[in-house]
Simulated assay, not measured.
Amino acid sequence: MSTIRYSKQREAIKDYLKSVTCHPTADTVYLNIQKTFPNISLGTVYRNLNFLVEHGEAIQIDCGDGFVHFDGNPIPHNHFFCRACKCLLDIKMDSIEHIDIIANANFPGKIEGHTVIFHGLCEKCCQKEHC
Score class of each variant (00 low, 15 high):
Leu121Asn: 08
Tyr30Gln: 00
Glu123His: 12
Asp100Glu: 05
Val45Tyr: 01
Phe51Glu: 06
Ile75Ser: 15
Leu89Thr: 13
Ile75Pro: 11
Pro74Leu: 10
Ala84Asp: 15
Ile99Met: 13
Phe67Ile: 04
Ser41Ala: 03
Phe51Ser: 10
Ala26Asn: 08
Cys82Pro: 10
Asp27Cys: 05
Cys22Gln: 14
Leu52Thr: 02
Cys22Ser: 15
Asn39Ile: 12
Asn48Ile: 00
Ile99Glu: 07
Ile99Tyr: 08
Ile59Leu: 09
Asn104Gln: 05
Thr115Leu: 05
Ala26Lys: 09
Gly109Met: 06
Glu123Asn: 13
Phe51Thr: 09
Gly56Ala: 06
Phe80Lys: 05
Ile40Phe: 00
Thr44Asn: 03
Pro76Phe: 04
His69Leu: 03
Val116Trp: 15
Ile101Trp: 04
Leu52Cys: 02
Lys18Trp: 10
Asn106Tyr: 14
Gly64Asn: 08
Asn50Ile: 06
Cys63Met: 12
Ile96Ser: 06
Gly120His: 07
Asn73Trp: 13
Ser95Ala: 14
Ile4Phe: 14
Ile61Glu: 04
Ala105His: 13
Lys110Thr: 02
Ile96Phe: 12
Arg47Ile: 04
Asp62Ala: 10
Leu52Pro: 03
Ala103Trp: 00
Met93Ala: 15
Asn73Gly: 12
Ile13Lys: 01
Gly66Phe: 07
Cys125Leu: 11
Cys125Phe: 14
Ala103Glu: 00
Ser2Glu: 15
Asn48Arg: 07
Leu88His: 09
Tyr46Trp: 10
Pro74Trp: 10
Ser95Asp: 11
Glu129Met: 13
Glu54Leu: 11
Ile59Pro: 00
Glu57Tyr: 11
Glu57Met: 12
Lys128Cys: 12
Asn78Gly: 11
Phe107Met: 00
Phe80Val: 05
His79Gln: 02
His23Asn: 11
Cys63Leu: 05
Lys86Gly: 06
Gly43Met: 03
Ile96Met: 07
Gln127Tyr: 13
His23Asp: 12
Gly56Gln: 08
Thr3His: 14
Thr44Leu: 02
His79Asn: 08
Lys14Gly: 05
Arg5Glu: 14
Asp100Phe: 00
Thr25Ile: 04
Asp90Ala: 15
His119Asn: 15
Thr36Ser: 06
Pro108Asp: 02
Asn39Val: 09
Phe118Met: 11
Ile99Gly: 01
Ile33Thr: 02
Ile33Arg: 00
His79Trp: 09
Leu88Trp: 05
Ile96Arg: 06
Thr28Pro: 03
Asn104Asp: 00
Lys35Tyr: 03
Asn50His: 13
Ile40Val: 11
Lys18Ala: 10
Gly72Val: 04
Asn48Val: 01
Asp15Val: 14
Gln9Trp: 11
Asp94Ser: 11
Cys63Asp: 07
Thr115Pro: 01
Leu42Val: 04
Lys14Ala: 06
Glu112Ser: 10
Leu17Ala: 01
His130Cys: 14
Cys85Asp: 09
Cys131Gly: 09
Tyr16Asn: 02
Thr36Glu: 11
Glu97His: 02
Ile40Glu: 01
His114Thr: 00
Ile117Val: 15
Ile99Leu: 12
Ala12Asn: 03
Thr21Leu: 10
Arg47Leu: 02
Cys87Trp: 14
His77Glu: 03
Met1Cys: 15
